[in-house]
Nucleic acid binder design. Structure first.
Length: 550
DNA sequence: GCCGTTTTCGGCCCGACTGTTTTCAGTCG
């Protein structure tokens, strides 16, 4: 039993409580307890055994009993009871924007609605507008929201595609007649949002393999002699391209690139490997990430793309001091274990209340903790930073004496998203003018498949960043992948330096450095254009110089 | 439900926005 399982159960209780009309603070109390458990440094089971669980701030008698029950039996009878009161899948309605737990709860109690279909019917029939708090405008917004939610149902973030692809490759490996299998399509191109997972399967016996695929996916369907479709878990569409082993490379090439790339490539000769296809056609190899367009095919020289192993350190890492799930030491140790020469911790600034932003006094505590823990991860260098809010007027959260305490500042927007393009651009430009700002964090604030970013004038921002020497972050969080790779070449043209950051809120989120690197590769970037491919001395010198001039 | 105390009851993290109100509740960050 680990603390995250306990926290998840408490979160679920909290969500059910918010659905019902009881005291909203009760729901909050469970949520607070969940966060407290998540951030525990001690083992939750040990705490329960020692009778010390209620000593955790935010955990009282009632919650303590629930936690103890979960630890002992693996489940909570209170949670089971709550689950029994609502249809499963009721939280699916949360996918509709502007619908939160309160409204979902009201809709269920008043109209018995618990699914998108029922919601749609109620909105169309006018039944919805009869409920207190829902006017005609609500029905309209909800119908639009349902359409929006449905459209996104068939799209997935890249990591989902990677996982499904890996799982299918493993399954295929256990089929005797399969000689080779490889993921192609948008997943292989590392596109940030994918619609399906393509796999090329090499076999001498297409009929046998086709038949075997019936058990590998749901909704099995034969499209044509060499193409089979189906659906994997998570409802991801899967397309198998069956091919003879001596054409494996050709099919891989044909099904990896976009039509624009494949068309421009011209005639694809038969070959066992993809490398052989390139060799036979005397075309220099194009990395899969670069096969969105035909641009590279036309180029004489290929850029050597940055690789994950080129990264020698990172910035933009959160800890339990703000909204991270692991402690300073845990985050430092994880970076150390990954072999990084340096890591920059940056918890939220005080304006970000909702994310547990650090007041000046909490900041002092955090820096003291860093001073204690950094000794344990030597010789890795630990930089002290902050992810400071860019306030609506473009000024940076924290006053002058505080800003001087940092080795680096990631400046990001976390409020007033709906600002118009011009106003938003001015806001960011003003932030770039602040000499304390080292990095510009997640440029557009987008959340893939859930929220559009704010609109900005990229060119003006890139110009100013270049002029002021501010590094622009490539936020590698798979939900963000912000800046979009399509705009990065324009930054590079202007001499803007970029840096790949994980925006990690837990140890596992250091993996965002992988997705972040893919973004840089898709943009055609080389290691030298990425700040955190530099060694620790060079980085230290850069930060020191910048501090001195601010 | 939790917490803290001017200690067993009243408050609980903030602010903008929107649609629904006629003074506010819910959502979102």
């Amino acid at each position: 039993m680990d603390k995250f399982t306990v926290a998840r159960a408490l979160d679920e209780i909290s969500r059910y409580l918010e659905l019902s009309d009881s005291n909203p603070f009760k729901a909050r109390a469970f949520e607070r307890a969940a966060r407290a458990i998540e951030k525990l440094e001690d083992d939750v089971v040990a705490l329960v055994d020692a009778g010390n669980i209620t000593k955790v701030p935010g955990v009282g008698k009632a919650t303590g009993d629930i936690i103890a029950e979960i630890v002992r039996t693996g489940s909570s009878s209170y949670l089971e009871e709550l689950r029994g009161q609502y249809p499963s899948g009721i939280f699916g309605m949360l996918r509709v924007p502007k619908l939160g737990l309160k409204k979902v709860g009201i809709l269920f109690t008043e109209l018995g609605i618990s699914s998108l279909d029922e919601l749609e019917a109620a909105a169309k029939s006018g039944r919805l507008s009869k409920v207190k708090g829902f006017g005609p405008k609500s029905a309209e917004t909800i119908l639009k929201g349902i359409e929006w939610a449905r459209k996104r149902e068939s799209n997935f973030l890249l990591p989902v595609g990677i996982e499904v692809g890996e799982m299918l490759r493993e399954k295929l490996a256990s089929i005797d007649a399969v000689e080779d299998a490889e993921v192609s399509g948008s997943v292989r191109r590392r596109l940030e949002v994918i619609r399906n997972v393509n796999l090329v399967v090499a076999t001498k016996n297409i009929d046998v393999v086709t038949d075997a695929l019936r058990t590998v996916v749901d909704r099995f369907e034969i499209v044509d002699e060499t193409t089979v479709k189906g659906v994997a878990r998570n409802d991801v569409e899967v397309i198998f391209h069956l091919t003879a082993p001596n054409e494996f490379g050709s099919t891989l090439l044909r099904t990896t690139g976009t039509p624009a790339f494949v068309d421009a490539f011209g005639k694809i000769p038969k070959a066992r490997t993809e490398k052989d296809v390139f060799k036979k056609t005397e075309i220099a190899y194009v990395e899969p990430e670069r096969r969105e367009t035909a641009d590279d095919l036309a180029k004489k020289k290929r850029t050597k793309l940055v690789e994950l192993s080129d990264l020698r350190g990172t910035f933009h890492v959160h800890t339990t001091f703000s909204d991270g799930r692991h402690s300073v030491l845990e985050m430092l140790s994880a970076a150390h274990d990954r072999g990084y020469e340096y890591v920059g911790l940056s918890d939220h600034s005080k304006a970000a209340y909702y994310a547990g932003g650090l007041s000046e006094s909490r900041l002092e505590e955090q820096q003291a903790e860093i001073a204690t823990q950094e000794k344990k991860v030597r010789p890795m260098r630990v930089f002290r930073g902050t992810e400071a809010d860019i306030l609506p007027d473009g000024s940076i959260d924290y006053g002058l004496p505080t800003l001087k305490k940092f080795d680096f500042v990631v400046a990001s927007i976390h409020s007033q998203f709906q600002m118009g393009r011009d106003e938003m651009t001015e806001r960011i430009l003003r932030a770039l003018d602040d000499p304390h700002v080292t990095f510009l964090g997640h440029l557009t604030g987008r959340r893939l498949l859930s929220r559009e970013g704010y609109s900005v004038d990229y060119d003006r921002i890139f110009d100013r960043a270049a002029e002021r020497g501010v590094i622009i972050e490539i936020n590698g969080n798979p939900q963000r992948l912000d800046v979009d790779w399509r705009y990065l070449p324009r930054a590079v043209e202007r001499g803007v330096v970029l840096s790949i950051h994980p925006d990690a809120h837990s140890i596992s989120e250091y993996n965002a450095l992988i997705t972040g690197t893919w973004v840089a590769r898709k943009a055609g970037l080389a290691a030298k254009q990425i700040f955190n491919t530099r060694g620790v001395e060079e980085v230290e010198e850069f930060l020191a110089k910048r501090r001195a001039s601010s």
